[in-house]
């Protein structure tokens, strides 16, 4: 589903990604762990072309992300084409980024209506099902400012799912939440994983990573230091840097 080959990304002088390669098969959950500044979030944002990569190749479901290959050269896609491919990749942000001027229902049906031109009733029906699935069927008419952080993040997940994505990206989805609200969001994500959604999750929730993911990827300083079976990587890390990081967070 996702294949990344030697992704490089630089912000000015700072080399953030120094050749990251990763494969995630359909239905798999990959968790990206690592200290802040290690490039996890940047890598995640490259997957839907929110950040342009400087070198390397990235495929989602067999399609090159952000570029078109002609012979040996890559050409950046036109905006509409980039947008069309992004529509198939859901993303959940650390700070939810719900649209504050819209109700919960409007937030969830917005993209289906505006991007996919779905009929309003069909979009609303799907939104109702999704909000029911994240346990917020009674909040359709609330505005985001009237919800708790955990509720907002669950709406954000429903909003992303409304586009029926092939792949879901989570960028530290619980980092901005009060500790007692983390569980409800992780529960929803656990449910998604169980239903076979392909997910790439940047997280600091080591317990969640161990329990849910098929692959754990440990990143530091722009490279993948160690990756593999979650129990092995987390319980008996081979790399020194992984060990040092886990010792601090566990």
């Amino acid at each position: 589903m996702l294949r990344a080959e030697a992704i490089h990304k630089r912000f000015g002088r700072l080399q953030v990604l120094k050749g990251v390669s990763l494969e995630v098969a359909r239905g798999e959950v990959a968790c990206l762990l690592g200290p802040s500044g290690s490039g996890k979030s940047t890598f995640l944002r490259c997957i839907n072309h929110l950040e342009k990569i400087d070198a390397g190749r990235l495929w989602v479901d067999g399609e090159l992300v952000g570029y078109r290959q002609v012979g040996a050269r890559l050409y950046e896609l036109r905006e509409a084409e980039v947008a069309r491919r992004r529509a198939e990749i859901g993303m959940v942000f650390q700070h939810f980024n719900l649209f504050p001027h819209m109700t919960v229902l409007q937030n969830v049906i917005e993209a289906p209506l505006v991007v996919r031109h779905t009929a309003r009733e069909a979009a609303a029906r799907l939104a109702g099902e999704l909000l029911d699935r994240v346990g917020l069927a009674d909040k359709l008419r609330s505005y985001p400012s009237q919800l708790s952080g955990g509720q907002q993040q669950r709406v954000a997940i429903a909003r992303a799912l409304a586009m029926q994505p092939k792949l879901m990206l989570f960028d530290e989805p619980t980092s901005a939440l009060d500790p007692e609200l983390v569980g409800e969001v992780l529960d929803v994500m656990r449910g998604l994983a169980r239903d076979g959604m392909t997910m790439v999750v940047v997280t600091h929730e080591i317990g969640f990573a161990r329990e849910v993911s098929d692959t754990v990827v440990f990143m530091d300083d722009g490279v993948i230091v160690e990756s593999g079976d979650p129990h092995e990587v987390i319980s008996s890390p081979r790399n020194e840097r992984t060990r040092a990081f886990l010792a601090k967070v566990l």
């Binding site: 509409a80 529509a87 649209f99 993209a111």
Partner: peptide, 15 residues
């Protein structure tokens, strides 16, 4: 973050 969320949902710059 608002624009990013919209882009991530597949909306163009103008939309």
């Amino acid at each position: 973050g608002q624009s990013e969320a919209a882009y991530a949902l597949g909306m163009t710059r103008l939309k």
